[in-house]
Amino acid sequence: MARERECMVNLYPLANYTFGTKDPLYEKDNSVSARFQRMRDEYEKFGMRRTVEGVLLVHEHNLPHVLLLQIGTTFFKLPGGELQPGEDDGDGLKRILTETLGRTDGVLTEWETDDIVSNWWRPNFESPQYPYIPAHCTKPKEHKRLILVQLPEKALFAVPRNYKLVAAPLFELYDNAAGYGPVIAGLPLNLSRFTFIYI
C-alpha cells in the first residue's frame, strides 16, 4: 500500500540566530510605475520574469515564525528577488539570500532549498497575483516561487540597514492578507503540509 510521505522540517529557536547589520540594499525601482515599466521592458527582452523568495523559519514556543524583512512600519516582504534568465531556482535563491542576509566576513551560510512552498503568477503588468494562472491568460508576466529554506542550527545574518528583520508567528499571518498581502498571508496554509520538529 502506498504510504503518504511526511515532510519533516527541523526548526531551531530564534535565539539560535544572531543578527548584524550591513550596508543598505535598495530596490531597483523608485516608484510603482518604474517597477512595472521595468517589468515590461524586461518582458520584451527576456520573457516572463521569474522571482524566487525564501521562506525562512524559526520557532518560538513551538510555533513556527517566518522571517520577514520589514521596510518602514507597515511593509513586509520575504527575502528574495529576480532570477537571471536561465538561472536555476535554488541557485538563484541562494545567491539572492547571500546578497540580502549573508554575512559580510566571507563566511558562507548554508541554505537548503529543497521544497517549494507555493507559486504565484502575475497575469498583467499590474499588481494582482494569483496562486494559479487565470484561464484566459496564456502569457503571465511573472512567476513567483516561494521556497522553503532550511536553516542551519545556528547562523549569523547580516541585515541591510534599511530593513529590519522580524519573525512573524504563523497566527499573525493567518487569514491576514490585509496586513501582509495574499502571498505571505497564505503561508500558514502552504506550510501546514510540513511536519515541524522543534528543536
Binding site: 543598505p24 525601482d29 516608484s31
Partner: peptide, 17 residues
C-alpha cells in the same frame, strides 16, 4: 491595495533612504 501597499513600501524605503 496592493498597489498602494507597494507604493507605501517604496515610499517607506525612500524615506528611510
Amino acid at each position: 491595495n496592493e498597489e498602494l501597499g507597494e507604493s507605501a513600501r517604496l515610499k517607506a524605503e525612500l524615506l528611510s533612504k
